[in-house]
Computed example of a mutant assay.
Amino acid sequence: MSQPPDAPRAFRDAPVSFVRRSGRMSDAQERAFAQLAPRYLLDVPRDAAATSVHPDARLDPAAEYGRTAPLVVEVGSGQGQAIVHAASTRPDDDFLAVEVYLAGLARTMLEADRAGAGNLRLVEANAPEVLGHLLPEASVRELWVFFPDPWHKSRHRKRRLVKPGFGALAARALEDGGMLRLATDWEDYALQMRDVLDAEPAFERAFRGEWAPRFDGRVVTAFERKGAAAGRVIRDLAYRRRDRP
Rank of each mutant, 00 (worst) to 15 (best):
L182E: 01
N126T: 14
R141Y: 03
F146G: 00
R181K: 15
R214V: 00
Y239F: 15
P5V: 14
L59V: 10
R205S: 08
F207Y: 15
F207D: 01
V73D: 07
A117R: 05
L143R: 03
V233G: 01
G76K: 01
A117V: 08
G23A: 14
S88H: 03
P61R: 09
E64Y: 04
K226M: 03
Q79D: 12
R46Y: 07
Q35T: 13
V19Q: 15
G118L: 11
G116R: 08
T89N: 11
G116N: 10
V130N: 04
T51R: 09
R157I: 05
S17N: 15
R172W: 07
R90S: 10
K153F: 09
A7L: 15
V123H: 08
Y239L: 04
S26E: 02
V53M: 04
A117F: 05
M1G: 14
P128W: 07
A69T: 04
R90L: 13
L135V: 04
R9G: 14
V145N: 02
R107T: 13
F11I: 13
A37V: 03
V53I: 12
P150I: 01
T108C: 11
V100M: 08
D94R: 05
D113L: 06
R39L: 07
R114D: 13
A32H: 00
L71E: 08
D243I: 03
L59W: 09
S26H: 04
R31K: 11
E64F: 04
Q35K: 11
V72K: 01
W144P: 01
L174W: 13
F147R: 03
L41V: 13
W151T: 06
D6P: 02
R155G: 12
F146S: 00
M109E: 10
L191R: 14
P148A: 10
D92N: 10
E111L: 14
A170M: 07
L169N: 10
Y189T: 00
P45C: 11
R121V: 03
I234A: 09
R46F: 09
A69Y: 07
L71M: 10
M1K: 07
R20D: 12
R24G: 11
L36P: 07
E124T: 06
E64M: 14
Y101W: 15
D195V: 08
L120W: 06
A69E: 09
F207G: 01
Q29Y: 00
D236P: 00
Q81M: 09
A10T: 08
R31M: 09
A168P: 01
L59I: 13
R205Q: 10
Q192M: 14
A7C: 06
S26P: 11
R12D: 13
Q81F: 10
M179K: 03
E124N: 14
G167C: 10
P245D: 05
A212E: 02
G231I: 05
E64L: 15
G116F: 05
F207T: 00
